[in-house]
Design a protein around this nucleic acid. Structure first.
Lengths: 186, 186
DNA sequence: GTCTATATTAAGATAGAC
DNA sequence: GTCTATCTTAATATAGAC
């Protein structure tokens, strides 16, 4: 008579990994049950709203990672290029050298709840804003900084797609190496 | 007693639209049936291998569009920047101004057949090679041209992700405007 | 808080009539 | 070549015991 019990954090991390790997439609409650050691009924106890509520929790978790890890690194003390390099290192780990997909990519296909798409959009916009605030330190106009920030996000998302489709981490790793330049120059 | 019958081309186009919109896991035979007017059994008559065979047909269709529309535009007579602008115009239409996703993105999540992933990779590599061949006309080394080509693909894929997640065609449209520069300069 | 058991609906797939 | 009908499996979801 086993009572596995999994912590809130472990449960969320397992869900994040699954959804980032297979996307919203590619994850079933059976897969979640297998990955967490919890029976489906227990998953409904934790997330009464079912899969959609789990996806919202995943998006909250990813947003919290941005707010507590990536953004603080950008706002640290020190020379801008060194802080950008630290951000790149955090991203490298977060995406496992390009082997993991981005939630913004794989969870943004049509079909989810309006709340899902609002959360996704808000997270992406917060990320762009954080990059833009960083870029402005290099003396860019707000508009130029916004362009640079969007461009960096475009490259991160796009290189993750290429790395996944080619089974080759190189495109993503080249983008990360470029990141300090992207956010400080123009 | 209706016999709808749909042409090979119309059937494939409907499948391409569905899969590019919802991804592999997001498309069911019921959706395909509804979109094509064919009952599920008829879909199996056309594609005995079921959904996976339909996805392979989608990838063949997309590859053929590349080979018969995009690549010839790049190889046309005329000044390079004008040919690149024509390619951008074709891409704008193909992605419906950024409202449609790329098959390379939405069909590359893990879980498909090995053949699917080989076809996807081959299509993407052919695309990169076509961009690289074009870029070499501007006097770049093979390595530089390859970098420029991959960078252009990164930006196309990434800007499509941003446009989708933000419900805003601007990132994709800016990328297209940039394309002639991307493929002729460095 | 997790379980077993079960209900309900949808998915992928096939048989056989026309 | 398409249909209706059906099969089997898997998905989402809930009830109730412990």
């Amino acid at each position: 008579m086993v009572r596995p019990t999994i912590s809130e954090t472990e449960l969320l991390d397992a869900a994040i990994l699954l959804f980032r790997t297979h996307g919203a439609e590619g994850v079933s409650l059976s897969k979640l049950s297998e990955a967490t050691g919890l029976e489906k009924a227990s998953l409904y106890y934790r997330f009464p709203g079912g899969k959609e509520e789990m996806i919202l929790a995943v998006l909250t978790g990813v947003s919290q990672w941005l707010e507590t890890s990536l953004f603080p690194a950008l706002r640290q003390e020190g020379p801008p290029r060194k802080r950008a390099a630290k951000a790149a290192e955090l991203l490298r780990a977060f995406y496992e050298d390009g082997k993991l997909s981005c939630a913004v990519d794989v969870l943004s296909l049509p079909g989810g709840s309006p709340r899902r798409h609002e959360a996704l959009k808000a997270a992406l916009e917060a990320w762009i804003a954080a990059f833009a605030a960083f870029a402005r330190e290099s003396g860019m106009t707000p508009a130029a900084a916004r362009n640079v920030a969007e461009d960096a996000l475009v490259r991160i998302e796009g290189s993750l797609v290429l790395s996944r489709a080619l089974s080759d981490p190189a495109p993503f790793q080249r983008t990360l190496k470029l990141l300090p330049d992207l956010l400080t120059t123009r």
